[in-house]
Simulated assay, not measured.
Amino acid sequence: MSKADSSNYKSKKKYFLKKGANRRTLDVNLKGFLCSCNSREKDCIKESYNLLNEYADKLYPAVLNPSDNETDEQDISESLSKEISGLKGTGPSSERRFQVIESGAKNFLFIRTSLENPAELAEAIIKDIHDSGSQKTRFLLRLIPVEITCRATPDEIGKAFLKISEKHFKDSPQTFCVIFNHRNNNVVSRDEIIKLIADKVNETRSDHKVNLKGAKLSIIVEVIKGFAFLSVVPDYLKYKKYNLLSVCSQEVSSDK
């Protein structure tokens, strides 16, 4: 192969790799889990898949695809070899239940899910760890459910929140708080977003109350680069902001 042909081949190879990778990057209207770790991203991916699959199998046995058990090891192996570049679907018309995607921040992974209610699964995991007092992970530190993703602008965050707010705040008065974090983004204002979200909660019902220390519902807004990850999480403060290591500590277990 000549140098010119070799150069042309390498350029095409890079193009196709980039094109394929785009299918596994962040987008709007995704559901999933933000997973934090401490540098050991490959180990975090493996633990996240194992934990999510274990509890999803228990919580949603009817939606388990027949091929899931056969391909879990392959999925984990592929994800480790590709680090956090994601996995392809297992069939032409279905998605994997869990698919790792780069979040845009170091030590933060986003695992996309095809499940309808990621907050329900995360709550089941955190409650079981709390009640049993058993440590389930070493490298996966925090598991934050994500009900919807959107572009990181106040207008888009407000619109995305409205899509998930009614099921949490319409039927009865709640105590709530807004938890805002940002990484690799200094454009979105914390105060602006908190006021925006609080105003929309009160537009749903006027009898909701803010409680910064013991809110029943926590509205999570995580901004990473150009995307925002939103969810409404029950007992988020009670369960140590869904820190999997802290919630199974002796101190927490003794509160039962």
Rank of each mutant, 00 (worst) to 15 (best):
L51C: 07
V100L: 03
Y49I: 14
I144M: 06
V28L: 08
V146C: 02
E102P: 07
P118G: 06
D5Q: 15
F161L: 06
T137S: 00
L237P: 04
S77G: 11
N50H: 12
S11L: 09
N8S: 13
L109E: 02
Q99W: 07
A62R: 15
K195H: 15
I157M: 00
E73Q: 12
V28A: 11
G214F: 09
T71M: 11
K238F: 06
F98W: 14
R142G: 03
V146M: 01
S114L: 05
A152E: 04
V187K: 06
D131Y: 08
Q135A: 03
S93D: 08
Y49L: 12
N29A: 10
I126A: 05
K240Q: 12
L17Q: 15
D155A: 09
P145T: 12
A215P: 10
A228S: 07
S7W: 14
P234I: 04
V187G: 03
S11P: 00
M1H: 14
E102L: 13
I157W: 03
H130D: 06
Q99F: 08
K3C: 04
T113F: 01
C35Y: 04
R183H: 10
D191T: 15
R96C: 06
A215Y: 09
D57C: 14
S231D: 05
K240T: 10
D255L: 01
F16K: 15
K3P: 01
R183A: 09
K213Y: 08
D27A: 09
E70F: 11
V201F: 04
G104N: 01
R190E: 10
Q74K: 14
F139E: 00
R142Q: 04
A124C: 09
K167D: 05
L59E: 15
V187R: 07
S81R: 06
V187M: 11
Y49S: 10
L217A: 00
I164K: 08
L59G: 10
C37Q: 01
D235R: 01
V252Q: 06
S93F: 10
V146P: 03
N181H: 14
N185V: 07
P61V: 11
N22C: 13
R23I: 09
R183I: 13
Q135M: 02
K163D: 10
I76G: 02
D155E: 11
L115Y: 15
S81Q: 04
I45M: 01
L87R: 05
A21T: 11
K88G: 10
G226I: 05
Y9D: 11
D131C: 08
C35K: 04
I179F: 13
G86P: 05
P145R: 04
Y55K: 12
E166A: 11
S218R: 02
L244R: 05
E203S: 12
F229V: 03
D68Y: 12
V146K: 01
S85P: 00
L51E: 06
F169G: 00
E95W: 14
R138M: 06
T153R: 04
